[in-house]
């Protein structure tokens, strides 16, 4: 039994310690945990309010509720403040649904930032008035007053190192910000 005792000893001596690094938190929440205003406002604009998945997110100082659902063949995520006020609407999109000149500009920005890149995911992000934001969901209509941005996830190489990045572009395709996405370790799946 000696090897077994050794293994048990190893398991108990090295206590798992909680990481001190700040990471983004995203949790599935039940509807009763979501601000009532957010639930009611969104529910009015959905064909099937029961098919919504709700999440609570913390990213730095930002603390929001997010609703994810499908409607009119689009995949939406809608962010709400903790008070239930709608903040933005994101829609997953394809590169061929972006205006040609804008996408050219995005690609040119990506080429100048990275030596190699592959786009993994594109989201249109709309910011604006409450009514206009809900109209995107219910009518699939985009009001001119809405502020459009593109959130793009790329697998890219910079300084000979490959990482996953999340970049934000304005509606004409100019880069606003970028950040590296920390990938979760895969040791559980590899060994």
């Amino acid at each position: 039994m000696k090897p077994f005792s050794l293994l048990l000893l190893t398991l108990f001596i090295f206590h798992p310690t909680w990481s001190q690094t700040k990471i983004e938190i995203e949790k599935h929440v039940k509807t009763h945990e979501v601000p009532t205003e957010a639930l009611e406002d969104l529910g009015e604009h959905l064909k099937n309010p029961k098919k919504v998945k709700w999440y609570y997110q913390e990213d730095g100082d930002k603390k929001v509720f997010e609703a994810k659902f499908k409607q009119n063949s689009n995949q939406y995520s809608v962010e709400f403040s903790r008070q239930g006020e709608v903040l933005n609407v994101e829609v997953i999109t394809k590169s061929n649904q972006i205006e040609t000149d804008t996408f050219k500009q995005i690609k040119s920005e990506l080429k100048s930032t990275f030596s190699d890149f592959k786009i993994r995911k594109i989201q249109r992000e709309y910011l604006g008035e409450r009514e206009d934001l809900f109209e995107i969901i219910s009518e699939n209509e985009i009001d001119d007053d809405l502020n459009l941005r593109y959130e793009i996830e790329v697998n890219a190489k910079k300084d000979k190192k490959r990482h996953l990045y999340e970049l934000l572009f304005n509606k004409t395709g100019n880069l606003i910000s970028q950040r590296q996405v920390k990938l979760k370790s895969t040791d559980i799946l590899d060994y």
């Binding site: 983004e24 995203e26 599935h28 998945k53 979760k184």
Partner: peptide
Amino acid sequence: FQFPLQGQQLDA
């Protein structure tokens, strides 16, 4: 397959 049970991504 690895499925998070408390959200779309696995957090601490």
